[in-house]
Amino acid sequence: MFATFFHRAVLTAISLLFGCTGEIITEKSGNLNLGVPGVMCVGGISGFTGAFLYEFFWSTPETANWFLAIMIPLIFCLLGSLIMGLIYSFLTTTLRANQNVTGLALTILGAGLSDFLGGYLVKQTNSGGAFVSISLSSKYYMATLPFANDLGWFGEMFLSYGFLAYVAIIIAVIAAIFLKRTRTGLNLRAVGENPATADANGINVIKYKYFATCIGCMISGLGGLFYVMNKASGVWSSDNLEPLGWLAVALVIFTVWKPNLAIPGAIIFGGLSILSYHISANNAISLPLEAKPLLEMTPYIVTVVVLIFNSLRKKRESQPPEALGLAYFREDR
């Protein structure tokens, strides 16, 4: 019972975790990328496109193999997200454009592009259907760990996910260690706190901003891929990805810019967002329909409370990076 709930929560949480970890790394460089929802959409649709091309054009059921079925969508997803990161970095870092405007435009681009491509691909199959499924790739993406079905609740809670779920957790842990313990992480945090100081200390601010944003976008994009492959089982629908992206932005605040806290945070947010569905699906209590939005609202309310709490407390360590949202130009005085 709880194990099933936990399992479902994690399926949503992993997308959030990818999105959040990527955005934390981006924001630590001082770039407030409000394009994350768009990046996740693009990550999802480019992975989907890769799988689609492989499944319907580049292979036959006889020649298809698991390695390419996994790698092609993965590479497409990373490339698509990377391009989004490059657009954002070029505009905000090189051309010093306003970060909010650029980010929102990026979200519009990502959501539009994924809707457009999604519709376009359906047309290409000539099946006349309203949706198209990439069952081959998603099958491999959804492959669980061994013993997932044999170990009862333990298997269901911890082993019953595709490999990307474990990748997400590993990335979050690595990101936490990277930010806290490594010299590069220290330098990155300095760029987000005080770019002029970082610059004066010989850190290449522009390079750091580019790398952090692009790598961050690639990680966020994986959240879209996970959603398509695992949560949606290979059926494209873009409706839920954009809200998920915004929830990931909220999660960044909720976790006070700490990727290690993002792991439990994502599971809490994931749990809250599926709680009403879970309760009504299991008929444990007959939950009125209108309780659903009230429950789904809670992650945002909690985030606002955290935001307010941190600004009231004024603790230096739990504030957003000092230079978040500001363009940097060395010769500005």
Binding site: L186, R189, A190, E193, N194, A196, T197, A198, A200, N201, R316, E317, E322
Partner: peptide
């Protein structure tokens, strides 16, 4: 104006 990161 010192080039230091306050938080560090």
């Amino acid at each position: 104006h010192f080039k230091l990161v306050d938080l560090f």
